[in-house]
């Protein structure tokens, strides 16, 4: 893996994390500001955000997403700062559980709550992409430490 390809990969990582961050912040904001529960002709239902699965205890799932994407952004910016792939070494330990958690949420959305939430799907997509990139970046970190 050339230095350039790592650079572009980190940039992609940061951009995807920003998209995920914006998405998760929006969902968190909607949770706290409280939209009106409805189903619309085009967008489906708010029911996902209202369901019992939208929170774990008092913590909205979306807020966990905000923390996850913030962590990812810190890792990306840390690399841009010190240019040492070591910052990515432990990344999959976060991205893999996040991916499976996301998968569980998508399963709930389609098969249990049975309502579509576009913002939740976007988040599942960004989490998946971040996990894939984290494997490459982890490999790079490993190579650097050898």
């Amino acid at each position: 893996m050339s230095k350039d390809s790592v650079f572009y990969m980190v940039i992609a990582f940061v951009v995807i994390a920003i998209v995920g961050f914006a998405d998760a912040v929006y969902l968190t904001a909607s949770h706290y500001l409280g939209g009106v529960p409805t189903c619309t002709v085009i967008e489906g239902c708010d029911e996902v955000a209202l369901s019992e699965y939208a929170t774990i205890g008092p913590v909205p799932v979306a807020l966990m997403g905000v923390l996850f994407y913030t962590l990812m952004l810190v890792a990306g910016v840390a690399w841009l700062d010190i240019r040492k792939a070591a910052v990515f070494y432990y990344l999959p330990f976060v991205t893999v559980p996040a991916f499976f958690f996301s998968l569980w949420l998508v399963y709930l959305m389609f098969f249990v709550i049975e309502a579509l939430c576009i913002f939740c799907l976007v988040s599942a997509g960004t989490t998946t992409l971040l996990m894939i990139l984290s494997f490459f970046l982890h490999a790079r970190a490993k190579a650097e430490t050898v």
């Binding site: 912040v25 904001a29 909607s30 500001l33 939209g35």
Partner: peptide, 18 residues
């Protein structure tokens, strides 16, 4: 980003499609 997203969510809840 946080500010913009909160604004968007606020607009949405203030102007329901109903």
């Amino acid at each position: 980003v946080t500010l913009v997203m909160f604004r968007m969510a606020d607009d949405e809840s203030a102007a329901p499609e109903t």
